[in-house]
Amino acid sequence: MSGQERGSAHAGPDTALAAYVLRLGDDALVASHRLAELAARGPQLEEDVALANTALDLLGQARSLLTYAGSLEERLTGVLRTEDDLAFLRGEDQFANCLLVELPNTDFAHTVARQLLFSAYQFELYSRLAGSADATLAGIAGKAVKEVAYHRDHAAGWTVRLGDGTEESSERMAAALEAAWPSTAELFASDPVFAAVAAAGLGADPPELRPAWEACVDGVLAEAGLARPEVPPVTGPAGRGGRQGVHTEAFGYLLAEMQHLHRSHPGALW
């Protein structure tokens, strides 16, 4: 685990950018994996198509971002890690994704809540990154923002249907939002890595994304007849969370499943 990934206070723009792109890649990778777990488990066939499609978009983003993170890292260390090296050969504490994306698919409402809150965040993020001074990152974000706009609309549509639908669906949707909400504070917390990429015009400083994200989410909740949950943010050990490699217990199982086959055949090509 390198200092750059954790977010060293001395991060220069290059090391910060490598760590930053890795965070974005890990977010997309883990969000995609959670959706992919639902293959053939959707409440109706249309959702099997939609959830797989969203998983596929996110996996595509993850592959571009991890490949780019690997090449940025190579410039610093001289050692290249491919997208697969980064996905399959890092341990839990080396993943820098936010905690929100690793929350489990407890029921369809939990999946929808996670996807709404995350897609709305990714939309604001990629909208800004499309104008990044880093041409590669701007290119990836410019393509991804169009995909994420659909994900957000899809999750918003279901939030409204479930919130407005029946008593049961409304209760489930409210419970799911309450479960996911504490993990959203982390999306908007800054640290030296975020600050360095923002200062260099390469990335976005998370606190700046919050007002637009809140406006979007509040609008959806209002239409769904749901209240914004009043629950405090998750407090990690010494303020550490997903960005610093301290994850949920469920995340270890996710990685164990995802990495097992790849790790069982060291050096094999697939």
Partner: peptide, 14 residues
């Protein structure tokens, strides 16, 4: 899908 051994194969399988 959740155990696909490379990201490319995972995308193809999804």
């Amino acid at each position: 899908i959740t155990r696909a051994p490379s990201l490319r194969r995972k995308a193809v399988l999804i």
